[in-house]
Design a protein around this nucleic acid. Structure first.
Length: 324
DNA sequence: AATGAAGGCAACCGCAGAAGG
DNA sequence: GCCTTCTGCGGTTGCCTTCAT
């Protein structure tokens, strides 16, 4: 296995640093620079291992360190960068002047991660949780319904039965079909994410390029257009065809429920979610430039507070609520 | 006021990769 | 090209503080 821990040797001190130790380290580095961390403790008169000194310096004593609460902008930056970089704390830290990777990591683990989970997102993928098994019975029922509609059973009895059902709930059926398609889209995009993550040869560079696309320097989030990535591609799928098909097959004008089809577009493969809004603080988000999306009002100061990422999709619908 | 639980954060540990001989 | 040493990174732990009962 790995080499023995450096601090095991010769009873070097571990644990919290005292003000005296801090002072010694600070003075030495200010005077001589850190040079070799290995030799620094001895030269500085510290009974610590070099590693411990380096950590103390980079995470606490460095003069350019910014302490205190993370601002909303910093929070958004972390979320965006994490959505494309993953747990690359040092890479994320380079975009947050004065913040250390350790601090960002802690902030993520204690605040942001929990909040994402609370809101029904997978903190690793930044996507809605895809625990399909819980929703399996509903999915099967919906699939059966959709097949029935698509097949257009010619028998009079079946037609009568179907018409009776659709007269009663025609719009619902079409909406349910759209929902099913939406779930399929989620599943597909999740699979694409996994595949592209594994295949990307230079994921970080691509991710940064992507981050740049998603959140421009002016802070305006570009409209979600397909963006290609090295080793994979950003998936873009819509419900347009399926919803239209259901509508036409029903032959019922009312089924063209006037939904802007772009609303159903979902984009996968490494894209980030819209900015996160604290549920407990919804409506209080001034929104930075990255907050606006074309079709999703999630996190945008629309006034309505909703725990769902895309509240305009199926508002108050137990189907989606349960699913998330 | 006492106590236990939860949250937050600093520090440690082990591994991987870079650098140097 | 191989080996050793050093540095940096990400995951995890454990202590301290705050909050709830």
């Amino acid at each position: 296995m790995g080499r023995s821990p450096c601090c095991d040797e010769s009873g070097l001190k571990k644990g919290p640093w005292t003000p005296e130790e801090d002072e010694k380290l600070l003075q030495y580095i200010q005077k001589n620079g850190h040079g070799s961390w290995r030799t620094l403790p001895r030269l500085a008169g510290l009974n610590r291992c070099g590693k411990s000194c380096r950590l103390r310096w980079t995470n606490y004593l460095r003069p350019d360190i910014k302490r205190g609460k993370f601002s909303q902008e910093e929070e958004q930056t972390i979320l965006h960068l994490h959505s494309v970089l993953g747990n690359k704390w040092s890479a994320i830290a380079t975009h947050l002047p004065g913040r250390t990777d350790n601090e960002i990591k802690n902030f993520w683990n204690t605040h942001l991660k929990k909040r994402l989970i609370q809101m029904g997102f997978d903190p690793m993928t930044h996507r809605p949780r895809t625990d399909f098994f819980a929703a399996l019975p509903q999915l099967i029922a919906l699939a059966a319904l959709r097949d029935q509609l698509a097949a257009g059973d010619p028998s009079p009895a079946a037609n009568a039965q179907l018409h009776a059902a659709t007269d009663f709930a025609g719009v619902d059926v079409a909406i349910q079909a759209a929902k099913l398609q939406y779930l399929q889209c989620l599943l597909q995009s999740a699979a694409t994410t996994i595949a592209s993550t594994a295949a990307a040869p230079d994921a970080e560079a691509a991710a940064m390029a992507l981050a740049g696309d998603l959140c421009s320097p002016e802070g305006t989030r570009d409209s979600v257009a397909p963006v290609s990535m090295a080793g994979g591609q950003l998936l873009s799928c819509t419900f347009t065809d399926q919803v239209a098909a259901v509508s036409s097959e029903e032959g019922n004008q009312e089924l063209s429920f006037g939904v802007d089809v772009d609303m159903f577009a979902c984009h996968g493969g490494g894209g980030s979610l819209p900015p996160l809004t604290d549920v407990s603080d919804a409506g209080n988000n001034p929104g930075d430039g990255c907050s606006a999306t074309t079709s999703s009002s999630f996190g945008v100061g629309g006034g309505e507070s909703s725990p769902l990422p895309w509240p305009e999709f199926f508002p108050d619908d137990p189907f989606i609520t349960d699913f998330l």
